[in-house]
Design a protein around this nucleic acid. Structure first.
Lengths: 218, 218
DNA sequence: CAGATATTCTAGAGCAAGTTAGAAATTTTA
DNA sequence: TAAAATTTCTAACTTGCTCTAGAATATCTG
């Protein structure tokens, strides 16, 4: 779950992956993408196996060739989304720069990634997962949250970000991002650039510390 | 649905309210509050009637004395939340002031209201409602969204808010607020003041227009 | 083309949750 | 305290969805 893992091919409880042929991996991903979109809109329980299958012109039973059960399918969606999130975070973080610039780069890159590969799974609702799955997801997403908090703190240290409670600020930013998956599809003609402009004003501009000139204070 | 309406006592499809005595109205509200919290955490389908009832030391069947069915119960939660939202918006809007100040007042007042009377219902998921209910909720929430957009636009006109796309900005702010209901309960010791401080940095500070460059406080 | 493998289907079993009916318990009223 | 009204319970019915078994179809390989 730290980024280089096998791409969500292993189910948690010891089940072996059900995809044998090379082609099936692509279809598996297609299922994950369709399931993510539907779950984002309707929620876990109302996203029936029948509907997910129908999005790919299949019957519900066909899904059980790729996943042992619905829980495992959705767990795989979670894993996939967290991995995509982490990949973007790592890529935009390793290029260096002040905290503020890294944060800005990350947000834009995440929007671009989502526009290209479909939305990330809304990861607020995990109550349908079992203990172990929930644990795994929670550990991973907390880890990512920490890394975002660190970027904010780096920014406060290097003077590029206004003093604030990084943990609260990160949650507020996440709220903006999570909600995106719901409303953006309902609006015509929203582009990454327009979104970034709005985020720039409401999210980033306030974080930017232009009182600088000297080193940031704690 | 414009604020002075009967407090969500009428069900949409012609059912009469099932609460006759004066006391039952209080219990009805208690049910709504408990249901809202549980739905926020688990989502509609996983918030079972059994669990909602258990939160009030009741059996599931008892809920049917107050609501004809689960759909109606949740619809009432939506109505209640929208009314509370509107009440806060109206109260903080009529005191006048520049757009920015009205927005700031509104956000703080909403946090205070939620801390006092329980969270608002997360209103992203409405797929379980029927056509008419969805229509009613959508109309009302769009109306509220417009009023928020107008505040932003007023602020741009009176010079207190930075030029931006008000519709996008409002959605981003709503995302922050909606997500609050999920994570705030999981963190120890979060107060309205600390939340407002964070929102001040990540949400409001960027919206504030100090382009005048004079000695306005940052 | 034939056999093997991979993928999807039909049909239905099993289960969990919403719902109902009517009986019990509680509270109110006189 | 007794009757009436209100509120909640028990127990069973109903529905819709997950998941299984095994047959049917498509795809691959030699």
């Amino acid at each position: 779950m730290t980024g280089e893992d096998e791409t969500a091919t292993a189910t948690p409880d010891g089940h072996k992956p059900l995809s044998h042929s090379p082609k099936s991996a692509k279809k598996r991903d297609a299922i994950l993408r369709a399931a993510t979109e539907i779950i984002n809109v309707k929620g876990y329980a109302l996203a029936t196996m029948t509907e997910i299958a129908a999005a790919l012109d299949l019957r519900d039973a066909a899904l059980y060739y790729y996943f042992p059960n619905k829980q495992a399918l959705v767990f795989a969606c979670h894993q996939s989304s967290l991995e995509r999130f982490e990949r973007v975070l790592s890529e935009t973080n390793q290029d260096g720069g002040a905290g503020f610039e890294r944060l800005e780069r990350f947000l834009r890159a995440l929007l671009v990634e989502s526009a290209r590969n479909g939305p990330l799974l809304y990861f607020g609702d995990r109550s349908y997962l079992d203990e172990d799955q929930r644990h795994a997801i929670a550990a991973c997403s907390e880890h990512l949250t920490r890394r975002l908090e660190r970027i904010i703190q780096d920014g406060m240290d290097d003077g590029s970000i206004t003093p604030c409670e990084s943990s609260l600020v990160v949650q507020l930013l996440l709220g903006m991002l999570i909600w995106l998956a719901k409303w953006v599809p309902t609006v015509e003609g929203v582009t990454v650039d327009r979104l970034m402009a709005a985020i720039g004003v409401v999210g980033l501009r306030g974080l930017k510390n232009d009182a600088a000139g000297l080193h940031g204070r704690a």
